[in-house]
Nucleic acid binder design. Sequence first.
DNA 1: CGTCAATTTGATTTGCCTCAAATTTCGTGG
DNA 2: CCACGAAATTTGAGGCAAATCAAATTGACG
Lengths: 259, 259
Amino acid sequence: MAARRCRIDDRMTLRMAVTSFESSLRQRCSNCSLREICLPLGLDAEELGKLDQLVKRRRRVFAGQHLFRAGDPLQSLAAVRTGFFKIYEVSAGGHEQITAFPMEGELMGLDAISNDIHRGNALALEDSEVCEIPFAKLEDLLSDLPRLQHQFHKLLSGAIASDHGLMMVLGTMTAELKVAAFLLNLADRLEARGQPRATIHLPMSREEIGNYLGLKLETVSRMFSKLRDDGLIATEGRKTEIRNYTGLRNLCLQGSARA
Amino acid sequence: MAARRCRIDDRMTLRMAVTSFESSLRQRCSNCSLREICLPLGLDAEELGKLDQLVKRRRRVFAGQHLFRAGDPLQSLAAVRTGFFKIYEVSAGGHEQITAFPMEGELMGLDAISNDIHRGNALALEDSEVCEIPFAKLEDLLSDLPRLQHQFHKLLSGAIASDHGLMMVLGTMTAELKVAAFLLNLADRLEARGQPRATIHLPMSREEIGNYLGLKLETVSRMFSKLRDDGLIATEGRKTEIRNYTGLRNLCLQGSARA
DNA sequence: CGTCAATTTGATTTGCCTCAAATTTCGTGG
DNA sequence: CCACGAAATTTGAGGCAAATCAAATTGACG
């Protein structure tokens, strides 16, 4: 296990060498996420070719580095190939709020299209790889490929839908349920990517989880302990194992039953 | 002032006659919201013509009626022409969560594109009028009109951005600040539509505001009273007047300063 | 004018936050 | 490889903001 966390921002030196071979081990899919997303569309070879041309070379982002910051002009959307990010926004009053934890296969920067400027900051929580997709070129391509256009709309719409899911968590759940829902959400997303849903790595701190869920870090920790004591999960540092998936899910369901 | 609220759902009878002429008084803009949205694009006459063909006849939705419900297949997006809606989702556990209060010029149903089925329920809070935009036809048109396509992407992206704004409110603010932010948000949206921002009508109940903000109705009421006692707003039933706009805004800013 | 729902206000409880300390984990250098 | 220091996490005690319970008041509509 090489080094994993890093606070110095945007100027990695020796760490780069150390971790560069590490991430090379992770290359599983032979192509970028955007193309993967489009595989079910039945595009022909020519169309797929256009898609490939669009995607710039993969880019590596080390733990603690920003891929983009609030205020940056939108040039490219970024699809996470490997690793984990956090997206956070800073309010006028200076408060940080994490709005998402994008993982493999998920797009970042969609909210920037509205005014061509990034609202959020994208910070790599672990050494990661992204595919950058120049947005202007993507839009050109979308006009030519209606099925791809439709898929892109689904993607944007899906982002709205998942934000609504989070709003429901924030608005209706107690601390215990919020944490349970958070773990279930991660488990489900892992499973959707063919990874085992029971074992979750959690590259983010308790404080970051709490920020995301509208809780304090101590409360998050207490709820992890409670879920552990109730036999629903097992914890070993940041490695979390879901011991009773249906139990967790039932907890969330009955919890939001009345209010 | 004719009747304003109604609980009987989807079977209005005499009310229809009473209120039908009432909403006819409100016709201010001569065309649909979609076209208005596209005015700054500099489309030529032919393009505008295509746009007009797309939009089905305006549809009236009476207070208490649903325009669509969760589970309905997505056929059309709907732009609010006049009136006010609430969009709410129901969790598996049966809890209702309001995710938005769309008003004039705002689109509903964007989150349904992701899987062609509405997640949310759209309920008219007052007698309203919408323009329905068949989504399949809209996508066809977008391929032909790149500027319109871009505008549509901005619209979707803007929905994501505004959801993030709400998440920040839910995650970081106290009850008082949530209510203040809610009123400011309404005021700003009114102003963006050329209406006076100081006078807000509030077609939703305290309970609905509380649901939206993650508070109980009693708390919402208390915070209205507090803002009133502090001279920031004046209340007269559901008619709310902003007496000190900058004061309200400063309250929100300093409030989220540290956490 | 009477009924019922919505809102306001008050009293009390509670869940989460705050403050504080102990413990574990992790990165670094010996 | 081990030991050290810093940061993250866990756990405890007490306080506070918002929820809950309850009652009075206002307002809407037949």
